[in-house]
Design a protein around this nucleic acid. Sequence first.
DNA 1: AAAATACAAT
Length: 649
Amino acid sequence: MHDSPFLADELFGRVLDEYPDIKTLKKLHAKIFFDQHLHQNPSLGIKLMRAYAANGEIRITRHIFDGIPVKNVVFFNVMIRSYVNNYRYDDGLLVFKTMSSYGFIPDNYTYPCVLKACSASQNLWVGLQIHAAVVKIGLDLNLFVGNGLVSMYGKCDKLLEARQVLDEMPRRDVVSWNSMVAGYAQNARFDDALEICREMELLRQRPDVGTMASLLPAITNTSSYNVSYIKRIFDNLVKKSLVSWNVMITVFVSNSMPGEAVDLFLQMEDCEIEPDAVTIASILPACGDLSALLLGRRLHRYVDMKKFRPNLLLENAILDMYAKCGCLEEASEVFNSMKFQDVVSWTSLISAYGRNGQGSEAVALFAKMQDLGMSPDSVAFVSVLSACSHGGLLDEGKYYFKLMTDKYQIVPRLEHYSCMVDLLGRAGRVHDAYNFVKEMPIEPNERVWGALLSACRVYSNMEIGLVAADKLFQMAPQQAGYYVLLSNIYAKAERWQEVTRVRSIMKSRGIKKTPGVSNVELNHKIYTFLAGDRSHPKSKELYEELDVLVGKMKELGYVPETDSALHDVEEEDKECHLAVHSEKLAIVFAILNSEPGTTIRITKNLRVCGDCHTAAKLISKISEREIVVRDTHRFHHFTNGICSCGDYW
DNA sequence: AAAATACAAT
């Protein structure tokens, strides 16, 4: 078949280098095995081992290794690496420990690999022995070995040792620095991680994709300064790879900058870079945040087209995107189409039903999950408890809290406590809620007191409201929302003097109300409205239409509700001020710019106020549209004058 | 004949 055996060698080698699939691989294997000449070529043996390992067929790799009569150090190295690349760290270390008894001396290829095994399994004990061994033979001066040591120490929480190795390396490259960055970042030493980046830049070592990826833990929920720092690294990359785009998207998403994440994703598409499963899983939460349903659906189709499924992580991300966009049917469709569902999938679905006001369904799902033998975790309980509070299911909520602590022995966290306070408070048990807070074994946080204060507003409990507000003003003196809530409590009781007093406190502390912002997605674009926004090109038309609507609403008995707003405007301005809350603008804009009959989806950054809630109900009736509003707490589905929350929110 | 750091959710 081949003119010369040497040509066959080369051909087989080249095919194997490309890691063929398992079927091709077995065919080649058989050919090589039966050919006397090929069988004796050590290079083909190495390549065969490597290719099997790349397919996860570690047992076959081992079988070939064992069958080689005359081994050399390379065989050992490849065997070790095959184990390590398949997460079999102890097996890798075992081969390493036995190789010297066969007379093979570990070399500059062996050590980086076994160090990786130590890093990945956090095996400091063996790591230290390896360090001693490489120093003895001077291999610690080797770049690859040094990098392995930095990484090993970093992964084993020994930052000082990692830093010392780095400092003493005779030569460093970008990987050396990145390993150090990763070490600090993984140990929550975020400032140190960033400091290393600056240091490497000073020494004219350009940060690369690896630097960005290593920095990731240090760049979640960070300052905008740090975000722009990593953006600058991204912009200055000599060559942008898929991973660099993925990391940059993740940075935006994990810093509550979903709009920027989506923009970057669209830019990436313009550059004709093909997104992979990681890209999609990273960008989907941003779609959820923005209620960018059209983009979300497009990504879903892309996943199906690319056959990325099954992929639990990705499917959970799609499911959660639909849940966050208020699309219960699509969310459960995805859930039902999944081959396997884990606790995360169930939790997503349960909280979706909960947030959409279908508390009983959420509770039923939770029960079903238990029936199927799935063990709920701490987060799953948060989802069912909050579903109970949104649905007004007082007894069920109490039952699940008890189930969690008694049967599952889960220690309640602040999230669970705030759900319970919310549950009791919304159900009108304001005193019970307050007692619950007082009896908590851990220090209540902002969320807990906030839930109590909200309950006090709904049920006009001034006494407890003042206690809660007082705590909140100490904990979060700059949070405008709590001042507004207290002022609402006073306003409802017609205590106008106190209302004025709260306003002047806010003024003296320089606190501004968080401006209301609403997003609406139309024709694949997201439009943003601020309260009182007049910056849109079609602003005039918008306000005219709003006037027409308000007129029709008044015919249906609409009376602008003035106590919903903080009285920071003059009396006569109140009605006008209320009329331009951002969700009203967004709704009117959507009515004007979409097909009649289609659903309108709005997301907003604050809780929807009583007046807008009434208005939305009426508008849904007048315009014959379903309006879905997602506020910071839940979904409101307005249809034909009725809201899914049953006016209980 | 063979190499090290590094991207995903409730």
